[in-house]
């Protein structure tokens, strides 16, 4: 099955069965928590914003 077919299949099922939203919530919150923990470890200390800005400049998201 192509990934785009999977998107369609999942949406079709979701329309009939809102219980599937629970899986989606788990995925979203797992990414949210992983990101929070990763960057807290990367930019430990009082100067979080400064370290974060250096990182953002490095990846081109900030000039």
């Amino acid at each position: 099955m192509k990934e785009i077919d999977y998107v369609e299949l999942y949406a079709r099922e979701l329309k009939k069965n809102p219980a599937l939203f629970r899986q989606q919530k788990m995925l979203i919150e797992s990414q949210y928590n992983a990101s929070r923990s990763l960057f807290r470890n990367m930019f430990q200390g009082e100067d979080y914003n400064q370290k974060a800005r250096e990182y953002l400049r490095g990846i081109g998201l900030l000039k």
Binding site: P18, F21, R22, Q24, K25, I28, E29, Y32, N33
Partner: peptide
């Protein structure tokens, strides 16, 4: 109205 719980997002 979307029939789901709120997420952290």
């Amino acid at each position: 109205i979307i029939n789901r719980e709120l997420t952290e997002l």
